[in-house]
């Protein structure tokens, strides 16, 4: 696996499965009374957030703390140049302070890649969402959630599973990362949106595109609803909020058209009444809360694999071959502690 996680395209199928399988084991840690591993003890992880994002930052922070990393939250709202210190100087500062990894959220597409490719910073760079580009850990937690429901078991992928992503594809980093990762894992992805919210050039993406939500519901195993900002209608992406809801929103009637096993997902935050109605959001088929919990496990796995000594010789958590078929049974629970074997976890 690469040293950085900037794009879902950085992950091979094996990388992705290793992360998902590791995350299953991390999930076990989170279910214990003492939710902590010594793996990243003495390592410093900086959460560098140029945009407000309480949920993503908190998720990373919990993941880091459960791995015993020293966590620093660095909020730098606003862009460089116009508002004070540049990205470069911020990065040089963090480097001088000895950051082993930087989790970056930035409003400018490409900012994490700039950090990763510059010589400003030597630690790992983890993209926590950049502009309208990518959000790879979100895609990983989504894939993790889908696998648990649709093809549970370590080492398994999403081959043949049909995923429909609905909403503002044009401005969505979640959609971009999901298309890349899900196709790597063998899923068949269909994007659904009004044509105004589909990017030019989407033909080259490994997915299908439909403008008709009702036409694809029956052929969907996982339906992911994306947030649609009301302000988009001011730029004529769609005429009114109500028309958007009627054509692309998910209500109970549409949900009933899904196959019985299908799940409804949302990366949050939801705009209830816009892309999703309250009865759907609160239904048992909706995995929103589960996705949040899975986010911590997946981020623990990413941090562990990027920073924790991912070589098998260190006794890294079981790879795809060794792992049990059942979704994370209690037997595998202690495996992630192996790299720091001198200290047994309670």
């Amino acid at each position: 696996m690469k040293r950085h996680l900037v794009s879902a395209a950085d992950l091979t199928r094996d990388d992705a499965l290793l992360i998902l399988d590791t995350a299953e084991e991390m999930a076990q840690v989170s279910s214990r009374a003492v939710k902590k591993l010594p793996t990243l003890r003495g390592r410093t992880v900086v959460n560098l957030f140029f945009e407000d994002s309480t949920r993503t930052r908190t998720s990373f922070e919990i993941a880091e703390k459960r791995l015993s990393a020293d966590v620093v939250n660095f909020s730098a709202k606003g862009s460089s140049v116009s508002k004070g210190e540049s990205l470069k100087d911020t990065a040089l500062t963090l480097q001088a302070m000895g950051a082993d990894a930087v989790v970056i959220r930035h409003g400018a597409s490409g900012a994490p890649l700039r950090l990763a490719q510059s010589d400003w910073l030597h630690g790992s760079v983890i993209n926590a969402g950049d502009g309208t580009h990518e959000h790879p850990t979100q895609a990983l937690l989504d894939a993790f959630t889908m696998r648990r429901h649709l093809n549970p078991g370590a080492g398994r992928d999403l081959a043949g599973r049909r995923v429909t992503i609905v909403g503002d594809i044009l401005h969505s980093r979640v959609a971009r990362s999901n298309v890349l990762l899900l196709s790597t894992l063998g899923a068949e992805v269909t994007l659904v949106a009004p044509p105004t919210l589909v990017p030019i050039g989407v033909e080259s993406w490994p997915c299908e595109v439909s403008y008709d939500l009702d036409a694809v519901l029956a052929k969907t195993d996982a339906l992911m609803m994306l947030r649609v900002q009301r302000e988009r209608m001011n730029a004529a992406f769609f005429p009114t909020e109500r028309e958007y809801s009627r054509r692309y929103g998910l209500d109970g009637i549409r949900m009933a058209a899904l196959p019985g096993h299908a799940i409804v997902m949302h990366p949050g935050p939801m705009v209830r009444g816009m892309e999703i109605t309250a009865d759907v959001a609160d239904s048992p088929r909706c995995t929103v809360v589960e996705q949040v919990a899975n986010g911590v496990s997946v981020r623990m796995a990413v941090l562990y694999l990027l920073l924790g000594g991912a070589t098998p010789a260190d006794g890294a958590p079981a790879g795809p071959t060794a792992a049990a078929d059942a979704p994370a049974g209690p037997t595998a629970a202690d495996a992630p502690a192996a790299p720091a074997a001198e200290e047994s976890t309670p």
């Binding site: 597409s109 980093r173 990017p199 050039g201 080259s204």
Partner: peptide, 18 residues
């Protein structure tokens, strides 16, 4: 607009200059 609007801008999530 940040770059040419086309396949690359769509992937990179950069505003397109058609």
């Amino acid at each position: 607009a940040q770059m040419n609007e086309g396949a690359v801008s769509g992937e990179l999530g950069l505003g397109g200059w058609p």
